[in-house]
Design a protein around this nucleic acid. Sequence first.
DNA 1: ACATACGGGACAGCCCGTTACT
DNA 2: AGTAACGGGCTGTCCCGTATGT
Lengths: 216, 216, 216, 216
Amino acid sequence: MIARDLQPPKQLRQRRRNDPEGLRDRVVNAAFHAFTTRGYHAVSVHDLREAASVSGGAYAHHFPTKKALALLVIERQVLEAVRKAWIEPVMSARTAATGIAGAIAAIIAELEEKQAVMGCPLNNLALELAGGDKDFQAALRSIFAAWRKALADKMRADVAGGNARYVDPDAAAAFVVAAYSGAMALAKATQSVEPLKLCTKQLVVYLKAVAQNGSA
Amino acid sequence: MIARDLQPPKQLRQRRRNDPEGLRDRVVNAAFHAFTTRGYHAVSVHDLREAASVSGGAYAHHFPTKKALALLVIERQVLEAVRKAWIEPVMSARTAATGIAGAIAAIIAELEEKQAVMGCPLNNLALELAGGDKDFQAALRSIFAAWRKALADKMRADVAGGNARYVDPDAAAAFVVAAYSGAMALAKATQSVEPLKLCTKQLVVYLKAVAQNGSA
Amino acid sequence: MIARDLQPPKQLRQRRRNDPEGLRDRVVNAAFHAFTTRGYHAVSVHDLREAASVSGGAYAHHFPTKKALALLVIERQVLEAVRKAWIEPVMSARTAATGIAGAIAAIIAELEEKQAVMGCPLNNLALELAGGDKDFQAALRSIFAAWRKALADKMRADVAGGNARYVDPDAAAAFVVAAYSGAMALAKATQSVEPLKLCTKQLVVYLKAVAQNGSA
Amino acid sequence: MIARDLQPPKQLRQRRRNDPEGLRDRVVNAAFHAFTTRGYHAVSVHDLREAASVSGGAYAHHFPTKKALALLVIERQVLEAVRKAWIEPVMSARTAATGIAGAIAAIIAELEEKQAVMGCPLNNLALELAGGDKDFQAALRSIFAAWRKALADKMRADVAGGNARYVDPDAAAAFVVAAYSGAMALAKATQSVEPLKLCTKQLVVYLKAVAQNGSA
DNA sequence: ACATACGGGACAGCCCGTTACT
DNA sequence: AGTAACGGGCTGTCCCGTATGT
């Protein structure tokens, strides 16, 4: 009718890159960061596409649903984060106790560089998603299991090597995971590393008690 | 103006009953349950209105925004839940250690009646909301503070009464909160009370250690 | 279930005033201001009740619908505003021409005190509402008619008194109303009194032309 | 993933046709018509989508907000309407006076074909929107400026060509715009072209006066 | 007269996933 | 592999008018 020149600026049409792996990485990394800091439900796929500079079609080509992407994030990135921050440091430490203390110390050091305490990626996702969906539940549970198993194995190695006498390494490992997770929750709620430091000290007290007189 | 009953006097048009407090209670209770089990972002206000059988107009009259409702839930219901499950049992127990063990035992007993482990209401909300919004953060933080303070006060009372010699009751209280919170997270992730039982035993070990030889 | 003390603060219950006329005045004045500056559709009855500090029940008791209130505003306040700003000054002036110039000058002076140019109340409402609703249309049209009639009558008096020789006073009056209305629209769009001043000068030129050589 | 046609291949599921420009045109034209006749606030985006037969998703893809759509309408369609109805006819006329008279005459002729007088698109929007929002204000102001400038330029050309002696072409142009705008407002309020005809005659009187003896 | 509580529906905007097209 | 267009439904919030109650 009036004015028919409403074409969108064709010249701005995004350049195509054809880099499937890079694209997947960008999306998965953006999703890991967004999901673990803001929460699965609080993040829209639009946010993720924007953060990763990916068009809707390309995104859909690689990730059928939001849930599938989240499972990928959990199984790859979250597991990897736990491995890097906990499993590897503990495995390569002299004893379980020193490894645990060292891992937490490293995390505290990293947090103190940044300004905000965003909590533990695994726990953030677990508390939001483990209640509802079986697939999420299974994925998250297996990471917790790997974490606990690594700690327990190290404790068993300590016992075998004569460095400690844990009566129930599995229980002790679960407790360490729990204490750290809860301390991080406290740290997130107060937006301060102070609870983490406090709890670390207490964790050391506990570990000394169970490693020496063998109460657990 | 003269009433002109154009519609035949529908007997079905059920008489409205003004019950603002009941309505508010229904909504707040529904919100407490839904928010703490499914998560704030996973629940729509439509869900809540339906669960509470409340019309859109009535809902809007009482709760300006979803956030305001959530703050109400946190400040009233969540605080009350922590009080009932933790603060009151511990305060009325003989010692901090027995109170803590008793509180967790009661929670485990309650969980074993039900089928699903939905986690700690406070921690569920904290992990989802403490990262983003200042108002949520403040509300949640104050509940954690009350929880920690109650435990620490009881420990200080134990010290004063000669029943224990905690060196740092605040740290010990924070650790108890953290260990329980983390154990509950583990329980939720595995959908089993087993981690909770395991961790409780270890918590007792810790408490014995710090209460007797005064390491903390 | 948990916490049942959710009663709204009963003590805050608004004091009842029982001042029906004052209440009506407050509402009608608030509505006049809001409707003529922000527009009928842009203002909610909630806004009006708040601006007039009137509860929903009291509001509804006096004004059955939003439209009825608006009609009242038009028939009372808008008409009164036109009377005060135009009809009375012109009627009491020596001639139509001096009355018109004086009326506009007074309006300009008033605008220059304030910061924003909100336009002519009558025209603001007319352009928004005259297109759709017959009742609004009739109410607005009658005000324009009164305005035009007053100007035409004064011109006819001028002719009778030998002060001017308007050939078509009705046309001249309509033109004055139109020129002023359009000038105010221009002033509102530019948020400046400058177009109003410019147009006033031209209006004087026109009036001299038609009053002296009798072209209209 | 293999396509599994769980629904029988619905023949009715009409094939989607991608026509972004057509869709945008449909929406913008519908918006132009609805906004300028019924008003910005009186029209819901639902109305527009329905009028343009556009789904919610498609609409959102092209127009982020209602305001953005309105700005587009103003900057494109309203400007174009003013250009077609006023600027081009006046520019291509022999003199400013004949151009102005011709433009209004054409508008009157068009109105007499239809039944309703919906007013000037530009003024309708201006009176509703220029009071509140800075972006709307700027967009509308620039159209008025273009309109006034075109008339003033034509008058200056007349002076240069010796066809008239306007002392202040800018003021005369503003006055013409104002008089027409106000006359159209009157016409809308009375739902009749009569005020428009009346005022046009007077406008000619004015133009003769200022063009010949050079009073403005 | 007037205050609170309430009903049902509309508001603009966003959601995730899919389809057409290059 | 990748882009833009698109569908249908849901989000939280607000709307105007009415009913209940003092």
